[in-house]
Nucleic acid binder design. Sequence first.
DNA 1: AAGTCATCGCAACGGTGCGTATTGTTAATG
DNA 2: CATTAACAATACGCACCGTTGCGATGACTT
Lengths: 196, 196
Amino acid sequence: MTDARRGRPRSDQADRAILGAAADLLTSVGYERLSVEGIAARAGVAKQTIYRRWPSKAAVVAEAVLAAQSGVAIAPPADTGDLRADLQEWALQYGLWLADPVVSAMIRGLVAAAVDSQTNATRLYDHLADPIRTAILSRLTQEAERGTLRKNADLDALIDAILGTMLYRVLSSLTDAPKPDLGGLMNILVDGVRAQ
Amino acid sequence: MTDARRGRPRSDQADRAILGAAADLLTSVGYERLSVEGIAARAGVAKQTIYRRWPSKAAVVAEAVLAAQSGVAIAPPADTGDLRADLQEWALQYGLWLADPVVSAMIRGLVAAAVDSQTNATRLYDHLADPIRTAILSRLTQEAERGTLRKNADLDALIDAILGTMLYRVLSSLTDAPKPDLGGLMNILVDGVRAQ
DNA sequence: AAGTCATCGCAACGGTGCGTATTGTTAATG
DNA sequence: CATTAACAATACGCACCGTTGCGATGACTT
């Protein structure tokens, strides 16, 4: 029997160095000026070591963004009984996270990578959006069970609106700091789904 | 006096051929696989003729997208007195326009170009988003004057939500046809800003 | 201890594409 | 006719992608 894992195993340290270097360069120079050779140089790694793991530059960047984001816990909104206040507070925290230039640069890089390779686009958006979707949906579900939401409210559309607004502001802001205030949006959305 | 326009004038036909070729290639192969040399070849034009007009590939693509979009009239929502129905109808029409693979590819190209060169990002987003913003805002203003909207409703946030949701769906949909249904969103938004 | 084998860093390669420069030609203006 | 600038064609330098060959390294097997 030939064991599937013979020979020298891949270095975990190389993995971390590559992803870390990719994240660093992404935030410092942006996706367009980021090169695989630059990643290799900064990581102290041969280019082949990168291509042995990922098939393309877009895939490396995608993985780096996911790895960096997976360290961030997406806490669901608190449940104080006041949906508006809970979502406002959550949006404030999340908006501040988005306003971080590092985070903005990463998201821009994610979008660029997704435009690059359609194959990974769905996976990327899913991995980034799903935690947020789950977090908000869990809070909305609590609310719905108390009967304080309209029965036919399209909660998916509501979440798309939150995600879309955040993405739009990140992409359309020239400076690295998008307008973080989602308070007005949350007011509209809460009033739009709340039982009358 | 040296007249500013001496010598051979630039060819309008070359302008049209370049922008047309850029738009064609953008929708057929996407931004990633689009090259200035490819544009020149398809337009039957020397590469230098392109670089005499625009400073970079991103600028050419940006101009091509804007030129293609400027032909589309962004009609404001009708005013039948029923804001919900008016916005639903407008969203339906606009959603169908977005679902066109050609339009989706163009928007993806726009985003890619914007990520490429931050310089043009604001100009691009403004040119594309402003007509929509103006169209919706004019309808909302009519409504506000009748006193049927909450006084403190954040109309900018509402418009950001519409634009953001559309953009998010275009970018995150793997197929070329994003989910065009904005009905659920419009319901929430209308209920969220309507006077109680 | 010796052998196996996938990984490692290093280096070079072909290919693509950006943006620039050169050359001779063509269409306007004075 | 002289001047001027855009034109097509073409070559160039450069950066980078993705691939390949090399000898060395290190965990596993026998």
